[in-house]
């Protein structure tokens, strides 16, 4: 199976993305952060809309855990 999941750098400004992600959690407690992350995953997953990509991403995320 050829990989569909993109793993080369996609952001023109990776530091800006990372900052956005971290700042989104500013002032949230653990529970609120978890909820934001869960919603984010659902929103991203729907945007991707491709189970093959999502399967690969899940496997990549679970590797080593």
């Amino acid at each position: 199976m050829t990989a569909k999941l993109r793993s080369d750098p996609a952001f023109a400004d990776p530091d800006a993305f990372y900052q956005l992600l971290i700042e989104a959690h500013d002032g949230l407690n653990e529970q609120q952060s978890a909820m934001v992350n869960a919603k984010l995953i659902l929103i991203f997953a729907n945007h991707i809309g491709d189970l093959d990509v999502i399967r690969e991403a899940l496997a990549a995320a679970k590797a080593g855990v």
Binding site: A34, A38, K39, L42, I43, N46
Partner: peptide, 20 residues
């Protein structure tokens, strides 16, 4: 449970979440 609750919370406004 977290994903369930997140889905329900999103379902109020996001059509895709209603389908989940």
């Amino acid at each position: 449970r977290l994903f369930r609750d997140a889905t329900l919370a999103l379902a109020r406004s996001a059509p895709f979440a209603r389908r989940l």
